[in-house]
Design a protein around this nucleic acid. Structure first.
Lengths: 353, 353
DNA sequence: TTCGCTCGCTAAACCGGTTCACTAAATCGG
DNA sequence: CCGATTTAGTGAACCGGTTTAGCGAGCGAA
């Protein structure tokens, strides 16, 4: 009644376990008749080689993990992730490698990584100083890190966050915006706004540099932070809307920007006349909303593809942990959500609407 | 230099392999001092129990698979999938179970399933007659099937496709639409339109029934099919736009509907005045586009959650393959993309615009 | 005829853990 | 003080395959 094992098939076919293994994996090593007999026996028994046992023996899981710092629920609220996975899938599907998302287990990324059934990891949204990740460095597991400055012993795929954000800021500055809301990515709840790291910090620097370069160094930036989701964007709008509304809002992701836009529309504003909004990423939905979202385009799928390629390469080359860093280009996609700054920006939002 | 194994730790700590295993899994069975000594030895060696070996011995992979009939690239083009995964993740994250997407390998779903490292499967977009899935039935692997009428030995989570589509059709009929495009889900390229199965067939039946019930039995349905993606929706619009444009289009998914809308807007039409569009699913993006998409809402995340619960239940109860069928409610979310049928529907689209 | 190869297959070791059955020593109740 | 438990730990079997080393038969070449 129990699941048949390789020994059962061997016995039934009157051969050794080895022969059965050959029948499935290296049929050319077997006489045709013998092979047929073995396969017939397997068929009769409903035998199917155990994937786990096979993976143990081959020391390859044929799986790679995508490590993310949040729950599956939260992380998939951002269309960026599906796009990234599409890119990873382009490479992995072709090689029969499965992709598994690795969210924290009971809040611990280290635990999640320890238990992950993978040959290598792609790290998303993690900074290299992360205390939980020290053990990972020593484990020898091949790793590709996304969007970090540097990762010990790992390949890095990144974009030029500073330049991308800078370009967007210049765009706004040239449209006359001098009072701009900036929505960073929410970190741990009690991280002070000025201690944001990684992506948020680099882009904020780019924004400052952009306004300065455009001769608008005096521009006031109102920095808030929010979870990366449509709801987060809405919350950010509410936060910025206490008192005077800025004339423009820059975000770290399109989904946040869309939340800002939706909240603004719900508040009765006209976009982009009353408020310009700039996103980041250029996910497909950015081109579906009205007005079409002006955003910093990054080649998300290409990023995923490249990450998968580099990781698989590192896995196959056996630990030859490369430490390359590849920077993909960004460009500002100017669409309909940005316009000249409104001149009545000193009015409370109620009067604007 | 090689990865340390449990025996290495045992030797170093002067205990048996069993003791080392206990130190990690059942620390209470060990004297505190001994345990400390073992853990220290493990730490020095950089030992980490092999997840694969552990899974082999425990006969649990702690992974479940989501089987889909298309490539990762194609399947993630539909925001439905991320939402479904969010629901599955709600359940699985809490239990430390990983979710793996299982797309076909070299076009074969059967192969993909054979090699999948999972304790059970959730089936999406597959019909129970599928020839490739006969072996799955016999394998004894726990399965939950989504959106099918029936699946031998598996729990089924579904919605009432007929009723949902019917409600949408009645809505359009009451708005005066009598010439309606219907965009089905593209099957194998040479499947005749009238032989669509499963979801498409049921919804088409619901649409017919709806128009009849609303006293608009004479309404002309123009049925086309397209891949489930924004591009697919655009292609469907082009197909329907050869000759006279219908006054409304019904789709099987929001992303398709959005593609139809975008193509219509690009063609210079005014929505919903010139063309009403109805989606299906109610993914988040449906409420982000302009006009807001009228669509048949289904509880996607709840569907995922339920599927995960039933599957995990089946796995834990050891093969007690339930054959329950749960039908989740749908409701028509009437928003801005539907309006009274235009009266000049006999004009070519060029003149409409 | 004999040497050397290839072919077809096998036994045993191995992948790296968990777990069962059991033992020796320590603890406990009466 | 004795028998019964409990505690702490062990050796061997087991999970279910793959792989290495090698063996006997058959065959071609010398």
């Amino acid at each position: 009644m129990a699941r048949p094992r390789i020994g059962d098939v061997a016995e039934r076919a009157g051969v050794s376990k080895t022969a059965v293994s050959f029948a499935f994996n290296q049929p050319e090593h077997l006489n045709t008749m013998t092979r047929e007999r073995i396969l017939a026996a397997a068929e009769e028994l409903g035998y199917r080689p155990s994937p786990i046992a096979r993976r143990l023996a081959s020391r390859r899981t044929r799986q790679i993990g995508l490590v993310v710092p949040q729950s599956t629920h939260d992380i998939f609220a951002n269309p960026f992730l599906p796009e990234l996975i599409r890119g990873i899938g382009d490479v992995c599907d072709a090689q029969g490698i499965a992709v598994v998302v690795v969210p924290p287990v009971h809040g611990s990324i280290a635990t999640a990584i320890k238990e992950a059934l993978v040959d290598g990891l792609i790290l998303l949204g993690l900074e290299s100083g992360h205390p939980e990740l020290a053990q990972l460095q020593r484990s020898g597991l091949p790793v590709v890190a996304l969007d970090v400055e540097h990762w010990d012993g790992a390949s890095v795929i990144a974009i030029d966050d500073v330049a991308g954000a800078r370009e967007a800021a210049i765009h706004l500055a040239e449209l006359g915006h001098r009072d701009v809301g900036v929505v960073l990515i929410a970190q741990h709840p009690d991280t002070p706004l000025d201690e944001h790291q990684g992506v948020s910090a680099r882009r904020l620097a780019g924004i400052r540099s952009g306004f300065a370069a455009a001769g608008a160094g005096e521009a006031a930036l109102r920095v808030v932070s929010a979870p990366v989701s449509e709801e987060g964007g809405r919350a950010a709008f509410e936060a910025l809307n206490e008192g005077l509304l800025p004339t423009a809002v820059m975000t770290m992701s399109d989904v946040t920007a869309i939340g800002v836009m939706n909240a603004a529309l719900d508040a009765g504003l006209t976009l982009p006349a009353d408020l310009s909004v700039v996103g980041f990423d250029d996910v497909p939905a950015a081109a579906w909303v009205t007005p079409r979202l002006t955003t910093v385009h990054q080649p998300i799928r290409e990023k995923g593809r490249l990450a998968a390629l580099r990781l698989i390469d590192a896995i196959q080359s056996g630990e030859g942990r490369a430490h390359s860093r590849e920077v993909l280009p960004t460009r500002l996609a100017v669409r309909g959500s940005t316009a000249r700054a409104r001149t009545n920006y000193h009015l409370p939002v109620a009067e604007i609407a």
